Simulated assay, not measured.
Amino acid sequence: MKLTFRAFKATKNKDLCEKYLNGHIQVLVNYGITNITTNNAEWMDWDFVYCVIAEKEDGTVVGGIRTQIADGSHPLPVEKAIGKMDPKIFDIVKHYQQDGVGELCALWNAKEVAGMGLSIMLVRAGIAMLNQVKCNTLMGICADYTLKMFRKVGFVVDNSLGDKGEFVYPNENYVARVLGILNAKDLSTAEEFDRVKMLDLRQNPEQTCLEKGANDSTIEIEYLLLLK
């Protein structure tokens, strides 16, 4: 399979934003989830949101991830998600805001590419892209089944929030954890393979390479991560 990973500022490509959102909604519906805080269209008009999408050769979007940078006016998705359960999240975001804090959110991939390992490739690309914007600290929220993947790229659980870092979210069937990368620039908490890969993508944001996916699958990915 050949895919293109394309990075862009949300306000500069409404068509791709629409494809991204429609695909994400469909995946959530398939899992019976309807109350995710990123499941809306308002972010498309915000000047501080950046996306990476996975496109097939025919232009079909089969996955994506995005980052929202805190601007002091619009709460990050994690603030909306757990703010009522633990208001300390507001203080944490405010503490890091001056030096640039954002949230990696709304990760999804289509059923046709499920099980291929596309998620961690999108996460790495989403983090790699952030050297082009002011984002020194990166946050996120994840479920149990994705925690191992997020730890590989450097996220750590914030045990000061909720019940030792745990929250019931988005519904009673799931346990979520609030995550943080203490330094989104040097990626020092990432595993070595993932850190080297992300730093290479920062050094060479436009490249084509073969990525080893899950179950010994191989995906040819054209990375177009320069924000234009």
Rank of each mutant, 00 (worst) to 15 (best):
M1C: 07
K2H: 13
K2C: 04
L3K: 11
F5E: 13
R6F: 07
F8C: 15
F8W: 15
A10D: 12
A10C: 11
L16Q: 08
K19T: 05
K19Y: 11
K19L: 10
Y20R: 03
Y20V: 03
G23L: 10
I25M: 12
V27R: 09
L28D: 08
Y31V: 03
Y31M: 02
I33Q: 06
I36D: 14
I36P: 00
T38M: 05
N39S: 03
E42N: 04
E42G: 01
W43N: 10
D45M: 04
W46N: 02
V49I: 06
Y50E: 02
Y50M: 00
E55C: 12
E57Q: 15
T60P: 01
G64E: 08
R66W: 04
T67M: 04
T67Q: 00
Q68V: 01
Q68P: 00
A70M: 01
G72C: 00
H74E: 01
P77E: 01
P77Q: 00
P77G: 02
E79T: 00
E79W: 00
A81S: 04
K84M: 04
D86R: 11
D86F: 02
P87F: 01
F90G: 01
D91L: 08
I92D: 04
V93F: 02
H95W: 12
Y96Q: 07
Q98P: 08
D99W: 08
V101E: 04
V101C: 07
E103H: 14
E103R: 14
L104N: 12
A106Y: 15
W108P: 03
N109S: 13
N109M: 15
E112C: 15
V113F: 09
G115I: 08
G115H: 08
S119Q: 09
I120R: 13
L122Q: 03
V123C: 10
R124G: 05
I127K: 05
A128G: 12
A128E: 03
M129G: 00
N131L: 00
V133F: 00
K134T: 12
K134D: 07
C135D: 02
C135H: 04
T137E: 05
C142P: 02
C142S: 15
A143N: 13
T146D: 08
L147T: 09
K148S: 13
V153N: 09
G154L: 11
G154A: 11
G154P: 02
V156R: 10
D158E: 12
S160V: 11
L161R: 05
L161N: 04
D163V: 13
G165W: 06
N171R: 08
N171M: 05
E172A: 07
Y174S: 09
A176P: 01
I181C: 10
N183I: 09
A184R: 11
K185W: 04
D186T: 12
L187M: 05
L187C: 07
S188F: 14
T189W: 01
A190H: 15
E191A: 14
E191M: 14
E192W: 06
D194R: 13
R195V: 14
R195M: 15
D200R: 15
P205A: 09
E206Y: 10
Q207S: 07
T208D: 05
T208L: 06
C209V: 11
L210M: 12
E211W: 13
K212F: 11
K212P: 03
G213K: 07
N215F: 10
S217W: 01
I219S: 10
E220R: 08
E220Y: 01
E222S: 09
Y223F: 15
L224H: 09
L224I: 11
L225Q: 12
L225I: 14
L227E: 06
L227C: 04
L227G: 08
K228W: 04
